[in-house]
Every structure is written in structure tokens, then in C-alpha cells.
Amino acid sequence: MAIKNFEDLGAMEIDVLTEVGNIGAGNAMTALSSMIGQMVDIEVPAVNILGFQEAIDYAGGPEKTVVGIIVPIKDDIEGEILFLLENDIVELVVSTFFGTSDIDLLNLSPDMTSALTELGNIMAASYVNAIAELTGMKIEVEIPMLSIDMLGAIMSVPAAQMGELSDKLLYIDNLMLIDKVSVKSKMMLLPTVESLDKLLRSLGVIA
């Protein structure tokens, strides 16, 4: 059996992807915790297969201002790690590194945006390294890119890339908890259909 569409995924495959997301995000959150000096927990991830508009609505709505960071991933798994950071995480990072939590997302200094880009880089690398170790696959992260704008405008970029192959997006999404309080910021993995097939094969879930 080969996965040719996101709709081909059955309950068992979804369970495996959930666990993959759990392991990747767990590693990324450990990296985040050590950078900000605060414990970040995650809840069990959700594997979402949604149409483009549904995905934007689910992530927080089109017009919400967020810090979007895309980290392209390549080699055995292709796709992106996408961060949609809101005030909660941005304030924590900025106060850790710059000693101020008085921020306006639309007026961050270049130093602040490069610190956030670097944070995205480290978290994405931690995420894919855990998956690479689990599966024996080779996965590399490419240079991260940052944009602060409306959520819908940011998500149009991964949507257009995945849209060449599919009418849906699959994303593995984790709810982050800081001091037991869930934050709105999101980190998600968006793999291509082809990569999912390879990933599930490498774990022996499909033959």
C-alpha cells in the first residue's frame, strides 16, 4: 500500500504520526525550555488534515497578527516546520534575551526578530533530529525565514507549496503548556504526501 493522498491515511497511520509528532515536539520543547529557563510541556499532538481555509481558521483566523517562521526541511522528509508565534511566546523570549516584555509584534527590533529566527532554527533542528534518530532517515533543516503579518497571509505560503499536490494540508500540531497554562503559539510539521509515505515505510507501518 502506498500513501498517495492524505485521505489514504488510516487510524493506525494517524496514531503513528501522532507519536512521531510527540517525539519531535518533545525534543523541540526541551530545547525551548533550556533557552528560556522555563519548563515547557506539550500535550498529545493532533494530526489535522484540513482544507486551506479550514486550516487558517483552525490556526487562529486569517487576520490575527503573528510572527511566522518557516523552516524548510529536505532530504528523506520534505516539507516545512511552521511556527505561528503569538504574544505569549514572543514575550517570554524577548524578556529572556532583552530584559523587556513591553513589545509590539509589528515593531520588534531586528535583534529581536533574529533571536526569534534562531529559536525557530534550534527548535526545528531538535524536532527533525529526533525523527531522524527514530527512523534512521536523513533529514536536514534549511535556512529559516521570518515574517510578521496576518496569519492567513503567512499560511498562504505553505498552502501554495502543498497546493501543487493536494487540496488539503496535513499538519501535526502540539499544544504547548508553560507553567501548566496552554499558550496560543503553535509549532507544526507540514510534510508532503510523498514524505509521509517514506516516513511510514521507514517505521514498518506500511509495506
Binding site: 486551506f52 481555509q53 487558517i56 486569517p62 487576520e63 503579518d149 496576518m150 496569519l151 492567513g152 497571509a153 503567512i154 499560511m155 498562504s156 505560503v157 498552502a159 501554495a160 497546493g163 487540496d167
Partner: peptide, 20 residues
Amino acid sequence: ISDWKICGSPDSLVTYALGS
């Protein structure tokens, strides 16, 4: 996103957050 609509006067059409 990935949609179109038409209308006549006096109605209007809105689309949110055009990026690329």
C-alpha cells in the same frame, strides 16, 4: 482562499489576508 464569488449592487465581497 482558493474560492470565488460574485454579487450585485449594493452587496460587497471581502477576502482576508492575501499573502502570496
